[in-house]
Every structure is written in structure tokens, then in C-alpha cells.
Amino acid sequence: MRKLLAPVFNRSESSLAVVIIVVVLIFSVSSPYFLTLSNTADLIESYSVTTILAAGVFVVLVSGGIDISFAAVASVTQFIAAMAATKYGVPAFPAIALACALGALMGCVNALLTYYLNVVSIIVTIATSSIFYALLIYFTGGSEIYNLPDWWTDRVVFLRFETASGDFARITLPMVIMVLVVVVTHLLMSRTHAGRQIYALGGNPEAASRVGIRILRLQLLVYGYLGFLAGLAGFVQAHRVHQVVPTAMFGTELSVLAVAILGGASLVGGLGSMGGVVLGVLLLAILQNGLNLLGVSPYFFDVVIGLAILISISVTAVTQRRLRAKRGNSELRHE
């Protein structure tokens, strides 16, 4: 199977960067408002939740799994934290900690089921996602929470500066959290033992257990981390929209997965980098923003994303096949 999946092999992040530069140049020429400071800041903020989730999904993908329960986890933790805050007056930090801890716990449930049932994680998380989500709607009756405490909904601005055109650009809480998550995930994956073990596990699970990597512990970390980030993302999402709606995150599973894959993570595991995922998000953000500014109907946006994904994966597959063919020949010539 692994051999058959080889066409999904990684592309280099550099080609993604080149595409982004080209797109930016085109939009910069065609719209004067593109990539102004305030515009960019808004852009980054609007993609903060997606990026946080994509970081967690990226870690799961590297380990060789697929988790699509994160949207359900984010909705559940968000709602429980909001209940704690509104009904019982739980203050900011305990509430956020509660959301993240709950998320991590639900992630661990996924890890345990995947490990002990010995079933591919996408199937397990489809099941748990249904359960988490359905129970949330059942117990809440789908009701929304509007009266979030001020500490949750107040806009936190760390930096604010005026641009030449008179607009304001702000560094806000979602942006800071997003950057922190990206940096921490990057460090985790590239600099710590755990991160390298996750790459090893994704690269060759059999060998990973042979060299003595403790698979269950690692999977608990991987799925727990995604759950933790889902809790965080749920908090940020409510912070941005000032309310908690149980159905708000529903249906974002595949688009977040698509972002991670556009950024170079592979379904067979062991490949991709945090930087690549950030570039993937960036490409989508820039495309959306540029098309907006050019007056293209927002309804057209999904068409562009779909095309971007299809083109990117096709180009990757074709170049990989060429590379392999070339390598095959050169190997023979050596002999």
C-alpha cells in the first residue's frame, strides 16, 4: 500500500512560494488596495482559526493518520467553556484551560480507539465526530450563547499603527495566538524528540515500533495535541464572532484538511512541514482577498480553491513520476 501511495509524495515548499509570489505580483498590479497593511492584517486575522486547526491536522497527517473530528471537538469545548463562563462565572484562564484540556482529552479518546481497535483513524474519527457533535446538539438543543463575558469578546489589540492612507492596522489576539501555535508546532515537529518520532512513525510505522518508539504514547500526544488546538481554535473563533453557535464550525473538516494538504502534508504520513502549511493558508488567503478586490463574485471563490487543489496535486504527481523515472534510469547507468 505504501508503495502504491508513493505518488502522493511531497512537493517542495519552494514551488508553493513561487506560486504565491506570482499571485501577489498579479494582484498588486491589478489592485492598489492589495497588500496594504490594514488589508493584510485583516486577512491574517480572518484565517487565524483555520491556521490553528491546520497546524493540528498537519501533526496528525505527519503521523500517518487523518482526523476529521476536530470541528466537533472545537464546537463541544467552545460550548462547555462558554457555559462555564456564562453560567458559573469561570474566569478567563481557567475557562480557556478547560476548553483546551477537554479538547486534548477528546483527542486522546481518538488515539485510544485508533490504537486498540486497530482501525484507520479516519474511520474512528468519523464515528467519534458523529458522537461528539450529535451529543452536543442533543444536550444544547442547538441553542446559541450570545452573552459571552467581556473578557472573551473584547478585542485585544497588542499593537496598532496608522498607515499612510489613514487606515489602522492592528495586531490582535487571534493573530498572536496563531503565530504562537505556528511557532510551537514548528519547534515541536522539527526540534524535539517527540516531533522526530512522529515523522518516523509516519514514515515507517513497523520500523518505528522496531526501534523502540512507544506508539501509543506518541499517538496520544498527536491526537491530544490536535484536540488541544481545537479547543484553542474554538475559543478564538468565539472571540472573533462574539457568540457561540454549535453549528458554526460544522462542515469545515474537509476545507482544513485541504489546506494542510495544499501546504504539502501527505496522506501517507511522514512528510510536510509547518512552513508549508502556512504557505498553503497564505495562498488561499491571498487568492480570496485578491479576487475580492478585483470584484470577482465571492461565490466564485470555492471554484478557485477547488482548481488550486486539483492543479497542485496533479502537478505534484506528474513531477514526482518524472523524477522517479529519471532516478530509475540513472540507477541503471551506474551499474
Partner: peptide
């Protein structure tokens, strides 16, 4: 051979040194 095809030569050779406590730096 039980190698990790996605990792570099040096990381494969010295993989034992990455099996310590999870959050230590490589």
C-alpha cells in the same frame, strides 16, 4: 531494513538518540 524513507541519512543512523524524553530538544 526497517529504515525511515522520509528522514535523512544521519537521522536514520542516529535515531536511537531521538528516543529519549519526548519534549527534549534534538
Amino acid at each position: 531494513l526497517s529504515l525511515f524513507p522520509n528522514l535523512s541519512v544521519w537521522e536514520n543512523i542516529a535515531i536511537d538518540q531521538e528516543l529519549g524524553a519526548p519534549f527534549l530538544a534534538v
